[in-house]
Design a protein around this nucleic acid. Structure first.
Lengths: 117, 117
DNA sequence: ACTCTGCATCGACAGATGTCAATATCGACT
DNA sequence: AGTCGATATTGACATCTGTCGATGCAGAGT
């Protein structure tokens, strides 16, 4: 039932919605600029880039948080960054028993690929 | 002679360099993560997305700063954001007489397109 | 030399952000 | 119920960031 860990309900960060003409098309609307900035901002941190990479590159399409410990920061910090990625709409999380799994939100990779198209 | 307005010489922001396997490839090196985060961070602001779009989408391949005034913030703020884009290696600037022109730095669009490849 | 115009820089300030230690929460298992 | 392990949340702190007004500076034109 993939409940997307409703944690970020009080975080109005304008998640990464349907979204956006290419960055190189004329007259990008201000609203699209905000949407794109939300996505870029979420990835504007080395640790979050690494986290997203671990999630996106995993063969199973998802990663257990318990496998994300070796990034040089503490557990609360990892959790904090995962929340940022969630609030930006880049990843979804699901609790299964003791562990929590993260996956890339649908459409995100496609939208990234469309940035320069 | 495109001098790239040497203003950002004291800003060690690790510009966007050659750079990087796709975000979706396994085991992204931490250094590449830092490089990519630099790029994302620079675009993690609505006004900078708009500025970059104005530059990237312009038919002449460059834009005069004098044509970037209608973004809802003051002139010093526009200048500040342009500097961020410069320091991140996303754009180059050149003074010609009274005006300053910005263009997308070579290779930047290609690297953006390669993010999901 | 003086003035004007375009853009960059400086100084200040409020608000956002990354980090950690401490604590809470949620499941699983006795 | 009670404990334990895995994540999330809270509170505090230092640092970073966006914005503005004021100022500096370079080129053009008089």
């Amino acid at each position: 039932m993939v409940k997307a860990t409703s944690t970020g309900e009080d975080e109005r960060e304008a998640a990464v919605a349907p979204c956006c003409p290419p960055l190189t098309a004329p007259d990008l609307p201000a609203e699209d600029a905000r949407t794109m900035a939300t996505m870029f901002k979420a990835l504007g941190e080395p640790i979050r880039v690494l986290l997203f990479n671990r999630v996106a590159a995993h063969p199973d399409g998802e990663v257990c948080v318990c496998d994300l410990g070796d990034l040089g920061v503490g557990q609360p910090t990892v959790s904090h960054h995962l929340k940022k990625l969630r609030d930006a709409g880049l990843v979804l999380s699901e609790r299964r028993g003791t562990w929590v799994y993260y996956r890339v939100a649908p459409g995100v990779l496609a939208r990234m690929g469309a940035i320069t198209r």
